[in-house]
Design a protein around this nucleic acid. Structure first.
Lengths: 344, 344
DNA sequence: TGAATTCATTAAATCGATTTAATGCGGCAA
DNA sequence: TTGCCGCATTAAATCGATTTAATGAATTCA
């Protein structure tokens, strides 16, 4: 005797009232007499009624789902084990979204150039580290879909976002390297126009000017991944052997840099110090382990979800929010050589 | 001049036809004259019409959305860095789902007891390693929502699933330990009634009978995580110092076991060998790195998505599918002591 | 030529809720 | 007593699509 799930009219009939009254009881939109409320609630309980979300959404127009997508190329965003920045943010965001009653759809980086999000029925999107002139974001905005980016989007100051505080992050990394004794620091970033690269390079420029270092900057194609960094670093370190520190925000590039250092017989951290930004699998898996930055991605993700939902509801005009300040996680790759093993 | 998004009647009006015809064109449900089809399509293009999914879902009862959820307790499934088994499967599943035109909603383990999936509008669910009598799965099935589990569900043989081949996995781990020279192997699994534990224990029983080992079995509460394994292993290794190998499928437990070994002055792998199952962050991060099993989760995830969509479409009666056979990833934690460094 | 049949198309019903407009009733003031 | 107001409740409209039943024109067959 498998019956169809009860509808609101069934409850109404059972309680001897109208559907509208049942709705009012359940949503407490208008006052209802205590006696009738009681009747309705018992009927609801007895029938095991739960409202059909599809009908609710059609009527109320409320959002069903938001999506999170990464514009980062597959080789970097996903990596060998498909775990990383994006998934870490996604996990945290999903939990927060669920708390607020919306589902979070995962849109992993795909190699195909056509955007599959076109087919998706989402009413808001989180974008992780968009390009300055991200076509994906442009398309979404053209369709009128609210977008919140994680990390500022350079050429779109009015774009709501959660700031990743890349200037501060860069300062942390660079000052740490100097404090550890490095006197010539090179910067290796992506060639794409991401805001985090811009902020990092600007901070690097300030840094080398203050400390009268020569500018040693590598801008590599993100899509080429580890191999590109490997090759480029071989050249860089050969051309200028006096370089004693590498600031490499992109962790895939850091892996390549480490390979190059090993091949050239440069001991890390003894003769070359390396730091990276994202504290993911790569940073911990590599030998020596890489000093990295705690970006507090769970807090950032939570802030982003709240901002997006607020924007969608029109209850905020915030353009920028921020998580806790980033902090350094010091590991072996950047320690002074008189102190190679981690404390404690 | 921000206009409301066009509805199907707007398109119909613009094309000089009825809404039903527009629907027929868009869904190719019934034949439509080529000339009218053309008119409709141009109108759709000109107005930029996209159907309202909320209305579609209410009418059709379908949702082009599936969810992935884990019943694994927070401490183990998510862990300190929120990356793990679930997210790895999720990433792979999301990509495959997208290829087949459905969105994948992430339902991370939450501490709350009531199931948030009730509010979600999904037409199919992937469940990762369900308990034998998983209440979550029962609730879903009661609601008539198709479920595919990743990993067999013990007490529900008719439940469609992708087999994780736990018997084979257990055999791999146990035989490897013996091949490396271990003569007394203990097994540490969860106390919950997951199928992988059952299969593993059964295989362990066969193994110790064949090799005339005493049974050394620990069944620990998953929710207690690393600390529980730590405490229990201290006792186990003290009570029976002749144990020279630990088979610890749950990676959080393996971390705890390693801590215990260190405190007792047991060198790994010199005097104690440890292997675990899931090759995640923990396995690679720990020192020494843990021998683990390549479960081919991306292939498993893909198979699961395809099976679920097939079940939803009613185009299959398969109850079980399977990925590639698991293979061992040998690392330092289980090497013979005459061969401590991994092969070059 | 007239009836039967096909075919594209349209009008109307439907999905299941929420929300607006209408109703009926009791209390209160004039 | 009549009229007005407030209140709880109900009837009906609505959200925007899909699908069924109805329509009408064109075609076939006797």
């Amino acid at each position: 005797m498998l019956k169809r799930r009860p509808r609101i009219v069934d409850v109404a009939k059972a309680a001897g009232v109208s559907p509208g009254t049942v709705s009012n009881v359940l949503n407490r939109t208008r006052p209802v007499d205590d006696a009738t409320r009681e009747k309705v609630l018992t009927a609801v309980a007895r029938l095991g009624y739960t409202p059909d979300v599809r009908a609710q959404r059609l009527r109320t127009g409320r959002a069903a789902t938001i999506a999170i997508l990464s514009s980062m190329p597959f080789a970097i965003a996903a990596g060998p084990s498909r775990l990383g920045f994006l998934m870490e943010v996604a996990a945290a965001a999903a939990a927060v979204a669920l708390e607020r009653g919306v589902a979070l759809v995962l849109v992993p980086p795909v190699e195909a150039d056509r955007a599959p999000i076109e087919q998706l029925d989402v009413s808001g999107v989180l974008v992780v580290e968009p390009l300055a002139d991200d076509p994906e974001v442009a398309r979404l905005r053209a369709r009128g879909i609210p977008v919140v980016s994680i990390g500022r989007q350079s050429d779109a100051p009015e774009q709501p976002h959660v700031d990743l505080q890349s200037t501060l992050t860069a300062r942390l990394m660079l000052n740490h390297l100097r404090a550890q004794g490095s006197r010539r620091t090179a910067l290796i970033i992506g060639a794409q126009s991401r805001n985090s690269y811009r902020e990092t390079e600007a901070e690097y420029d300030t840094f080398i000017r203050r400390h009268r270092m020569p500018k040693r900057l590598l801008q590599l194609d993100e899509t080429a991944g580890v191999a590109a960094a490997h090759a480029a670093c071989l050249r860089l370190l050969t051309d200028d052997p006096e370089i004693d520190a590498l600031c490499v925000p992109v962790d895939a590039f850091a892996t390549g840099a480490l390979q190059a250092a090993n091949e050239l017989g440069r001991r890390v951290p003894k003769s070359l110090r390396i730091v990276t930004r994202y504290d993911g699998l790569r940073a911990r898996e590599s030998r020596p382990q890489l000093t990295a930055v705690n970006l507090h991605l769970d807090a950032v993700a939570a802030a982003a979800v709240h901002l997006l939902l607020d924007v969608m509801a029109g209850t905020t005009s915030d353009v920028s929010r921020t998580g806790p300040p980033p902090s350094l996680i010091v590991r072996e790759s950047s320690q002074r050589f008189d102190n190679t093993s981690p404390p404690g």
